[in-house]
């Protein structure tokens, strides 16, 4: 049955502010489809964001929504989840939010393995503030603060997540909707901290500065630098060099923090009086 998006959207907040050709709306639709498929109720979801284009998402979705300060979404979300573990906590943020100003919160959230769902809307640029370079801007690409090209190496969101201990890590691009749907849905089903590196294009800034053209032309460019993780063994090292795998990249089982904490409370029951 077709998904009725308006069951999840705050209709009166439409139209959204995202530019024509921006992929953020595609990510939001994938999120909605995953929620719909899982039958999650609006009232049991808390959606938390930082600051930036991606972080306008909570305003549009009819859940308990929180638009925090720049980079701090995971910190606020940690408090929400630990205080009310029954809530499904989804966190959204941009590449600046999660990889720059909120980088410390990102790695520690991965390490703790609290059952929260992080989706990084990654468009390699600070869109809201006018196209400055971000920690995922590709080397040599142009931005308003990298007018001669970006001289640094970008972070790989997924490698960072895996190295920090996230128990589910996936990457998908808005140009491949079925894959985006699958990766987000599986991340939501996962018990533990999940990270989805959701690529979206920013034709307004990144595309324009780098003469990458329209949104669809940008998608063609992105296609050249990815490969499906399922083809990992068929491709040579040479063919994979400098390219980003997409799909579900990592999934392991590890103790989830809230469950561990509840176990601790249960073990300690009755001990206060004895003390």
């Amino acid at each position: 049955m077709a998904v009725n998006y308006f069951n999840y959207l705050r209709k009166e907040k439409m139209p959204h502010i995202w530019c024509a050709g921006c992929g953020h709306g595609m990510i939001v639709k994938s999120i909605i489809r995953a929620i719909d498929k899982l039958g999650w109720k609006n009232d049991e979801i808390a959606l938390v964001s930082g600051i930036g284009c991606s972080s306008r998402t909570p305003g549009y979705l009819d859940f308990h929504t929180l638009h925090t300060t720049h980079g701090r979404a995971l910190a606020f979300a940690t408090g929400i989840k630990l205080a009310k573990p029954n809530l499904k906590v989804i966190v959204v943020g941009g590449d600046g939010d999660m990889m720059a100003i909120g980088g410390n919160h990102f790695i520690h959230a991965c390490r703790r393995n609290i059952d929260m769902k992080l989706i990084v809307y990654n468009n390699n640029i600070y869109g809201m503030t006018g196209g400055q370079a971000s920690p995922t801007t590709l080397t040599d690409a142009k931005a308003t603060t990298a007018p001669y090209g970006f001289l640094e190496e970008p972070f790989d969101v997924c490698n960072m997540a895996i190295a920090s201990g996230a128990t589910f890590v996936g990457r998908a691009l808005d140009l491949d909707v079925p894959l985006m749907d699958r990766v987000i849905l599986e991340s939501f089903k996962h018990k533990g901290f999940s990270v989805v590196d959701a690529w979206s294009q920013c034709p307004t800034y990144f595309g324009r500065f780098n003469k990458w053209g329209s949104a669809s032309e940008m998608m063609e460019r992105y296609k050249q630098i990815i490969y499906n993780i399922r083809q990992k063994d068929q491709l040579s090292e040479e063919e994979k060099k400098g390219k980003y795998p997409v799909g579900i990249l990592h999934q392991i089982e590890r103790n989830e923090f809230c469950e561990r904490y509840q176990k601790l409370r249960d073990t300690l029951k009755g001990k206060e009086e004895a003390e």
Binding site: A46, V48, H64, L66, T68, T69, R72, L74, A75, F76, A77, T78, G79, I80, K81, L82, A83, K84, L87, N104, H105, I107, H108, Y261, L264, R265, L268, K271, E272, E275
Partner: peptide
């Protein structure tokens, strides 16, 4: 806190600490 049904967490820094307590309060605690 775990003795009285509450939750303690050592955060990664003070910015995270204040974020977490504001989040917990919004969740009603």
């Amino acid at each position: 806190l775990p003795l009285v049904g509450g939750t303690f967490i050592q955060m990664e820094d003070e910015i995270a600490s204040i974020g977490a307590i504001l989040g917990a309060s919004l969740a009603g605690v």
